[in-house]
């Protein structure tokens, strides 16, 4: 299989006051198409920064990042936004749904950027909700749903535009064990049955058990790779 995510000598540093803080240092990484990779490591190890770079939300200080065949540092902000809309689906720890919109409309959001008709957008959103098992909650607003249900809506939103890569930042961090397991089973299903490549940041070793491939980061460097 070919690498869908490829990082070469990637460094990322921030300036905090007069001090430069190095978050990632000369990182090389390949994630293959169809993989379900878990990124683990202590707080401040650079997991979320790495996820943001792969998702095109941030730019590296140096090095090169290629995702889904596109070298990200060469894209303008506008082109990068378009690329994210087409290629990446995001799942956050705190769901990040728009509270004023129903589940159906939250899922439909990414499709507003496509040329699909209103009817087709509605149909695709309904299908995505069906995949995550929430078709009967389409008319509910986030405030009327449980945490697990909200995260399923967020996953449906991430899926609806049929992205190449799903990026999940602590997707079970705000959920109880049973609900977390349901979400992880759903992600594993999407990886296994729908062929979605998934990169997931987690602190939870049990969550990492659902992945095919676990990457350990420490102090901005990859220290271990474990294949399931």
């Amino acid at each position: 299989m070919s690498a869908i995510v490829s990082l070469s000598k990637v460094s990322k540093s921030y300036t905090r006051g007069k001090q430069e803080v190095v978050v990632l240092r000369d990182l090389d990484l390949n994630i293959e198409e169809g993989d379900f990779a878990a990124l683990m490591g202590p707080s401040g190890s650079g997991k979320t920064t790495l996820l943001n770079l792969i998702g095109g939300l941030d730019q590296p200080t140096s090095g090169s990042i290629t995702v889904a065949g596109q070298q990200l540092e060469k894209l303008s902000a506008k082109a990068l936004a378009r690329w994210r809309a087409e290629k990446i689906g995001f799942v956050f720890q705190f769901y990040n749904l728009l509270p004023v919109l129903t589940a159906q409309r939250n899922v439909e959001l990414p499709l507003l950027l496509t040329k699909l008709s209103a009817a087709q957008r509605k149909k695709n959103a309904a299908t995505a909700l069906q995949i995550v098992g929430l078709e009967d909650r389409a008319g509910h607003k986030p405030g009327e749903l449980s945490g697990g249900q909200q995260q399923r809506v967020a996953i449906a939103r991430a899926l609806v535009a049929d992205p190449t890569l799903l990026i999940c930042d602590e997707p079970t961090g705000d959920l109880d064990r049973d609900t977390a397991d349901e979400i992880l089973d759903l992600l594993a299903l999407l990886n296994r049955e729908h062929g979605k490549t998934i990169v997931m940041v987690t602190h939870d070793p049990k969550a990492a058990d659902h992945a095919r491939h676990v990457l350990h980061l420490d102090k901005g460097q990859l220290v271990e790779q474990v294949h399931a």
Partner: peptide
């Protein structure tokens, strides 16, 4: 602000 950031994450351009 966070909601607008989510929109940008989903691919909505700055403009």
């Amino acid at each position: 602000v966070p909601e607008l950031a989510v929109l940008k994450t989903l691919g909505f351009s700055d403009a």
